[in-house]
Amino acid sequence: MHAVRCLRTGRLLLPALWGLALLLLLGCRAQDTEANAKEDDRTYRVGTPVADSSVAAVVSSEYGSDTLTAEAFRQQLAFILQRYPQIQMNPALLPEVHKSIVEDFIVRHVVDGEIARQGIQADPATVEQELEQIRSRFPSPEVFQQALAQDGLTEDSLRGMLAQMIRQRTFREQIEAKATPPSDKEVEDFRQQQAEQVHVQHILFRLNAGASEEEATAVRNRAQAVLDSIRAGADFGEMARRHSEDGSAQEGGDLGFIRRGETVEAFEEAAFALAKPGDITAEPVRTQFGYHLIRLVERRKDDSLMDAAEAREQLTEQRKQETVQKTLEDLLRKATVRINPSIVQAKL
């Protein structure tokens, strides 16, 4: 199931204005640690910096041009920091947050532009139905109107938001319909793969996006020094608690059991290559998040295979997500973004 992350403003529950297109197009799934995310490559182009202090970013493409104002950028940043206070306790995460706000802005530009180009429309009856569902959450029409006013909305502006959500949902469904169904052999191979699991610990040495070669070398050297200490007898879990920059640090870096397809590719390959409990990666493993040390706690294989229908359903869903991702990448190649580096403190 694809979820839209929501925020509560006043007493009105509405999809977050930021992240709307990206979340609707790609879906979102909360993850406990950075190891459980998928790698992606930047496909848009970066142009010359913006000097206007009232502008955070400008994106242009065949669909036209859109501006992310400095005020809108700061509002989105404030919302994220309020929702995720742990980010404020780790300033190293801020460049990634800045980058995510700008990249969502780019995604919304190309997705909404393509929706307009294709002439995808929202059925007025469906808009009214969804509006009525929101109204029904309130004890009276007066309370509903008060909530709208608190959010700076009117019923007409809310209708517009809902209509765009429906257009985005329709666009996604059209893309998903193009996904190739898995074959019987692919389903059986998937069932066998999912039976294999590894229980691992890891220590993450974070490397910010856009880090220089010198910075990467320094982080890798830190990871190697800790690895040398572990090989000399230091406890892996204690080293994770001291040094890891991942949410699993307090649990000694314990990620529990993972299956294939649940982590970034480089992490998965290294974890499943470990043969015996206690084995540790021979060297730090580089992913988009930085360098990892990985230790195998246990391997297991389920005696019973996943139900074939469930395996087919999961594979089908993966195919849909891959098709959507490919479409998004193709759209992003059309975009050029220019940022104001005094506001957006991230390297794209």
Rank of each mutant, 00 (worst) to 15 (best):
S248T: 05
E173R: 13
Q194C: 03
L13M: 14
E238R: 09
G119M: 00
A311Y: 00
F73T: 00
R222N: 09
F171Y: 12
R231C: 02
G27C: 05
D235S: 08
R137K: 06
R42C: 04
R29W: 02
P124H: 11
P284Y: 01
L162Q: 07
A35G: 08
E298P: 03
E130D: 07
A116W: 00
E329K: 09
S100F: 02
A240V: 00
D32I: 02
R286Y: 00
P341H: 04
E196G: 07
V344F: 01
D151C: 11
H98W: 01
Q192H: 10
E313W: 07
V200I: 15
A249H: 03
V55A: 09
I343K: 06
G27R: 04
N221S: 13
G10T: 02
Q133V: 08
Q121F: 05
N36G: 09
V59C: 10
V107F: 01
R300V: 00
D52A: 12
D151M: 11
A125Q: 12
V111F: 01
A16C: 15
R29S: 12
R338T: 06
P139A: 13
E62R: 14
P284L: 02
M161C: 10
R222S: 08
G64Q: 03
R231E: 04
R45N: 12
E269F: 04
K334S: 15
K320D: 00
L255V: 07
E71M: 11
R74M: 11
Q88W: 03
Y291G: 09
E176D: 08
I80E: 08
F105W: 03
Q75I: 10
F272M: 01
F105M: 04
P277Q: 12
G10S: 05
F257R: 08
A147N: 05
E268F: 03
K320H: 10
T9E: 15
C6L: 13
P341K: 02
L17H: 07
A266K: 06
T263H: 10
H109G: 06
T287D: 01
F79K: 14
V107G: 05
P341T: 01
D307T: 03
A51V: 14
I203S: 01
G19C: 04
E96G: 12
Q76S: 14
C6I: 13
